[in-house]
């Protein structure tokens, strides 16, 4: 293979590797936010769990005068191994065990959970226990 062609092939491979790395880093950010939520709920740390939520999701949890750190622990969020991560722009959806989680990437805040404890409904949006 001539040097120029080899150079182009190496450049192409590096580009593909860089894009793949960028995608996995991007996916990892969403997965980390979901993992942080479920880990905090499991150890009973409501404040840390609410820190993983988007500001609108925090507001939605704080219904009827209850505070997010207390209420988030009563919603039965369990989570599980993260899989099937889909990232489209500043939105992501992933599975955490049986649970489905939706996330939003907010400028200055990073990935935050917008909805969790979501169950599919045929032909309609997911029904979620936490929903911004």
């Amino acid at each position: 293979m001539p040097d120029t062609a080899r150079g182009h092939a190496v450049s192409a491979l590096l580009t593909v590797a860089a894009v793949a790395a960028a995608c996995s880093v991007r996916d990892a950010g969403a997965a980390e936010a979901a993992t942080a939520l479920f880990a905090a709920v499991q150890r009973g740390d409501g404040r840390a769990a609410c820190a993983a939520l988007s500001p609108k999701a925090v507001s939605s949890v704080e219904t009827g005068g209850s505070r997010c750190p207390e209420r988030i622990l009563t919603l039965g969020l369990r989570g599980g191994p993260i899989h099937d991560v889909r990232v489209w722009g500043d939105r992501a959806r992933l599975r955490a065990g049986e649970d489905t989680v939706f996330l939003v990437r907010l400028s200055g805040l990073g990935w935050k959970v917008a909805a969790a404890g979501c169950r599919p409904r045929p032909g309609r949006p997911y029904d979620c226990d936490v929903e911004a």
Partner: peptide, 15 residues
């Protein structure tokens, strides 16, 4: 496709 899927995820729908 990418923009629409982002909107769908924002509405809690699958891509």
């Amino acid at each position: 496709w990418a923009a629409h899927n982002s909107d769908r995820l924002a509405r809690y729908e699958d891509d």
